[in-house]
Amino acid sequence: MRDRRAVLELTPEGLFCPAGGFHVDPWRPVPRAVVTHGHSDHARFGHGHYHGAAIGEGILRRRLGADLPFTGHGYGAPFALGDAKVSLHPAGHVLGSAQVRIEVEGEVWVVAGDYKREADPSCAPFELVPCDGFVTEATFGLPIYRWDPGARVIDDLVAWWEANAQSGRTSLVFCYALGKAQRLLAELGQRNGRAVFLHGALVSMVEAYREAGVALTPTAAVSDQPKSERFRGELVLAPPSAMATTWMRRFTAPATAFVSGWMRVRGQRRRRGYDRGFVLSDHVDWPDLIRTVDETGARRVICAHGQTDTVARYLREAKGLDAVAIQSLRDGAGDDG
C-alpha cells in the first residue's frame, strides 16, 4: 500500500512515531514520550524523557516527581524530534492538555488525547488543527451522550448549593481531582466567588492551577478547619474515592452530588448512590466528536479510547472515512468523565 513507514504505528508500548523516535501517551516505559496531559492514564511513570505543554509542567511534576526529565513547549511552537516536526496545540480538556501535531514528509497527524470543544475558564480552548490523520478519543462515543450547555449546569449546581444552604446542609460535590475540580472552582469564581472547601486530595492540583495563573474561587482545606467546624451551608469538593468513607462523618446529613458526563445515564446515577448527578464533562460529547473529525478534514481516523468500535464504524459507514479502532491497555483502567 504505502512505500514508506506510517507516521504512527501501534506498538505494545502504545502509539509510536518511527520517524521521530517517540511515543505518544505510552502505557509502558519508553525512552522518549510526548504526553498529552497529566491524567494518570496518559502520563505514566518511568519514561526516559517527557515532552509536554509548558503550562502543564506543574501538574506533571506534582504527579510524577519534581525531578521529572521534562521539556516544556509553548502551544503552537514547533520542535523537531528525529525527522518529525512536532508541535502542541490546546485540547481544551484540562490545564496543559495538548493535541500533538506530527508532520513527517508533508503528512500531518494529530493525536488529540482527551479533548472538548466547550468553553472552560480553567484552560486554553481547543484549537482546530487540520490534518491528514486524526487520533481521537471516544470516551462518550454514543449519541446518547450530548451535553447541555455548561453554563446551565453550573446554574443548576449553584441553585442546588443555595437550596442546601438554606436548610443548613453541606453540599458535598464529588469530581475528579485534576480538571473537573479546577473547572468548577474557576466557574464558581466567576459566579458568586464564595470560598469552597477542599478534600485533602484536591489541594495539590488546585495549587498547580493557581501557580499557572488560573483564577479560581478562594479555597480552604477541610483538614485545616477546627474540629468544631460543621460546614453548614458550605460547598465542599472531594474526589469520588472519598464517597462513603469515614471522612464523610465530618459532615452532618450532607447533600451529595457527582459531576461527570457519566451522570447523563440514569443507571449510572442510581448505581453510584449520589443525591444528584450534574452532567458536566471534560470530554467531547457525540455531536462534538463527529463535528471535530469533520472539521479537521482528516481522511484517516484512529479511535483510541472508550467506545472506539462504535465511533470507527460510524465514521466509516456514515462519513466514508478510513477509520479504525485500537484497543489501548488503558481501557478499563477507570474512565474519567
Binding site: 454514543l142 449519541p143 446518547i144 450530548r146 447523563r264 445515564v265 440514569r266 443507571g267 467506545q307 462504535t310 464504524r313 460510524y314 459507514e317 456514515a318
Partner: peptide, 22 residues
C-alpha cells in the same frame, strides 16, 4: 442508523430512557 440505536440501548438498558436521551 439502527445499529447505533441498538448500541445506545445496550449502554442505557432502558428503551424509554434511550429514546428520551437520543
Amino acid at each position: 442508523p439502527p445499529w447505533l440505536m441498538d448500541e445506545s440501548y445496550a449502554a442505557v438498558g432502558d428503551s424509554a430512557e434511550t429514546v428520551a436521551l437520543l
